[in-house]
């Protein structure tokens, strides 16, 4: 046990995800040794992020201001929307450089076992976007887990009657993977979703 501010810092760091007692100590002493500027910059960026970052009122991504950069970008196709579970998933899709539409962040997936139903996600807001006739195609990019799939099916049942085209990202063998090690669910899906070359 340390005293005063050092112990307070360790305690504060320990509350972060994935940080235990030892890592917290290591980080605390690193910060103590580092120049004062560096520590101040870190403290300020945490505060700035907390104060300035809001939720985009259109797509519910994190944003600086009322709308996020993707919703403000006029070059992006407003009729094409990619539905994801969390803001971090947007980064993954963006890294592909294959997608030029906009996003919709659900804020999780349907998981009855955890008491999370459709009403706890931003599904109503997505429905409103489709009903306003803004969207031609909805790409459902929830995780290919059981809960992500169930969410995708729920969305498809809801949105298709409204006349929107609803598509699901493909799933299959990862590039650089090995068929021998593929599980039968994944390989089955890959065969089902095969395409002509």
């Amino acid at each position: 046990m340390f005293e005063g501010p050092v112990q307070d810092l360790i305690e504060a760091l320990r509350r972060l995800p994935g940080i235990g007692q030892k890592s917290a100590q290591r980080l605390a002493f690193h910060l103590l040794k580092a120049p004062a500027d560096e520590a101040r910059a870190l403290a300020e960026s945490i505060l700035a992020a907390k104060e300035r970052v809001a939720i985009c009122r259109e797509c519910f991504n994190v944003a600086e201001g009322e709308r996020c950069r993707y919703c403000l970008d006029a070059r992006r196709d407003p009729a094409l929307v990619c539905v994801v579970e969390e803001p971090a998933d947007i980064i993954a899709v963006e890294r592909t450089q294959e997608f030029r539409g906009r996003y919709h962040v659900l804020g999780g997936h349907i998981s009855p076992i955890d008491g999370v139903g459709p009403d706890d996600l931003r599904i109503r807001e997505l429905l409103a976007r489709v009903e306003r006739g803004e969207l031609k195609e909805v790409i459902v990019a929830t995780n290919p887990t059981v809960e992500g799939e169930a969410t995708a099916i729920y969305l498809a049942n809801l949105l298709k009657p409204l006349g929107a085209r609803v598509t699901r990202i493909a799933s299959g063998i990862p590039v650089g993977g090995d068929l021998e090690y593929a599980d039968e669910v994944t390989l089955g899906r890959a065969l089902e979703g095969r395409r002509e070359i």
Binding site: E149, I153, E184
Partner: peptide
């Protein structure tokens, strides 16, 4: 290794939700 994936449960919302009841209660 998979013995059965019970794939049909994943592909239908009502079956999925009922399946979650089974898993939760068994847990």
């Amino acid at each position: 290794e998979i013995i059965t994936s019970h794939r049909a449960i994943r592909e239908d919302y009502a079956r999925f939700a009922a399946g979650e009841v089974v898993l939760e209660a068994a847990d």
